[in-house]
Design a protein around this nucleic acid. Structure first.
Lengths: 184, 184
DNA sequence: CGGTCCAGTGAATAGTCATGCAAGTCCGCT
DNA sequence: AGCGGACTTGCATGACTATTCACTGGACCG
């Protein structure tokens, strides 16, 4: 057992192949990878693939009804437009307020248009539309549920968390979005 | 449909709390989350947390000897410097060549210094040092193994794959890094 | 009102993954 | 040679996660 060892860099080559494999096709399990590696001449077991995955920092991301492997890098890059939105949100602090069925995003002067466009093109689709002013933009919804759903998704786009919570008032208190009181 | 149940969307609040929880502390399992949600008044089981995690696009990333939950976004953001390097590599195409125990990265005019510095500050540590010219930089290694290790890690930093492979010649043929021949 | 539909959930379980342990290999050193 | 340590891997298994199945309660409808 433990055949190898002779060729010192088998591990490196295997890991490179691994990266290549997950880049080419959606892979759903480590067993699948074992199989593919096998086809390419690497004799390994799931245990080794597990360790390789950890070393390479691979993650399993939920993508369209199933989970697939990706590099941490690729995981954040679903849609190219999503990436654009994420970038914007990293650079521009956005405060979120709420008014009825609209969310009010307050950004920096001149940036509202860019953010609105980024939102429109992103994979965020629960909104009816967006309307941008100079430093403020509205995101309009049809229902309360749509608004809530949107907000939760939107939060995963924001960096850490510097935003205010979407209650009524644009209060000064640093109330975080993810407040967490008891359910009822 | 689903116009928000009666309880003002417990689900949405739970998911927001979930995002908050994983942002605040490293969480290693869904059972852990069940426990924490429980403390905050949400009565759910692991099954539900699993579904929430999928909806929110959460991933479990290998971080320092254990796996923790994070948003896809946060997963790519280990070290701030790592992010910087990733950014650079997204914007600047880098061709990789090799010469002995050195890797030769050829970028765009004037960018070599920035890339070298980004590499120095990143979590890439297997190199002995870097040396930047104008559009070319060298990454020096002590051993073959270190070079190989470094290269594999470096690949996870690159966007998709536009780079050339680290063989001898800076060939024109679009040979991909992740070649995948059989082991021996 | 009964009927139907459907989102949401828990219980149980199948599926998947991580890891302790032991074994094999490759050094380098004496 | 012989020894010891650092690596790497497979095996077996426990840990963890996703999913199937069944149920519930609210919404919608005639």
């Amino acid at each position: 057992m433990a055949i190898v060892g002779s060729q010192p860099n088998v591990k490196q080559r295997r890991q490179r192949t691994l990266l290549d494999l997950i880049a080419r096709a959606p892979i759903g399990s480590q067993d699948e990878l074992v199989e593919l590696l096998h086809q390419r001449g690497f004799e390994v077991t799931q245990a080794t693939v597990s360790r390789d995955a950890a070393e390479l920092g691979l993650v399993k991301v939920p993508r369209a009804d199933r989970h697939i492997y990706a590099t941490a890098e690729a995981a954040a890059t679903g849609n190219a437009y999503d990436t654009r939105l994420r970038r914007l949100l990293e650079d521009i602090p956005v405060r979120i307020g709420r008014s009825g069925l609209s969310l009010v995003l307050v950004a920096t002067p001149g940036s509202a248009g860019a953010i609105a466009q980024a939102i429109d093109q992103s994979s965020l689709t629960d909104q009816v539309g967006t309307l941008a002013g100079d430093n403020t933009l509205l995101v309009l919804f049809e229902t309360e549920a749509a608004l809530e759903r949107w907000l939760v998704r939107f939060m995963t786009f924001q960096p850490s968390d510097e935003s205010a919570l979407p209650s009524g008032r644009p209060s000064p208190a640093a109330s975080r979005v993810a407040n967490s009181e008891a359910p009822r």
